[in-house]
């Protein structure tokens, strides 16, 4: 399904710059929310660009827009200083990906909407 402009545009602070929010108690919310549990207040927080793989998989049957990339490693990464992302782990042989692996965030093209639509960018991680 195509990602239309308004939706893509709305998410760019998160996709491009990992903008999150941090509550007084130190919890990181990505993306920022309108309301935080317990009515806490939160400040804008830019997540770090390094982190650790908490768990992962290697996708062999991807959604249509991602088919050229398969097989690709994909994991949940805990960023240093708080916040988690689900993201592809690239520039690595998927067989070498491990839980606990150190990674860093890179700006990458996430998907292409055919030859005429939007080019959609965002974060992926590579071995640190």
């Amino acid at each position: 399904m195509k990602i239309r402009s308004p939706r893509y545009h709305r998410e760019t602070p998160q996709r491009y710059r990992l903008e999150a929010a941090k509550t007084k108690s130190g919890d990181v919310y990505f993306p920022p929310r309108v309301y935080y549990p317990g009515g806490q207040t939160a400040e804008p927080f830019k997540m770090s660009d390094t982190g650790t793989v908490l768990t992962f998989t290697v996708i062999h049957t991807p959604p249509p827009e991602y088919s050229d990339l398969a097989p690709y490693a994909l994991g949940i990464v805990e960023l240093d200083g708080g916040g988690r992302i689900t993201t592809q782990i690239v520039d690595v042989d998927p067989a070498e990906v491990k839980i606990g692996m150190r990674v860093k965030v890179e700006f990458r093209k996430i998907r292409t909407e055919g030859s005429e639509g939007l080019l959609c960018y965002g974060y992926k991680v590579v071995p640190e």
């Binding site: 050229d68 990339l69 592809q88 690239v90 520039d91 890179e106 700006f107 990458r108 093209k109 996430i110 080019l119 960018y121 992926k124």
Partner: peptide, 16 residues
């Protein structure tokens, strides 16, 4: 370039 790299992504990483 990898399939997910283009002039923009390379420029962004260099700029960072």
């Amino acid at each position: 370039p990898a399939l997910d790299q283009d002039t923009i992504t390379l420029a962004v990483e260099a700029a960072k």
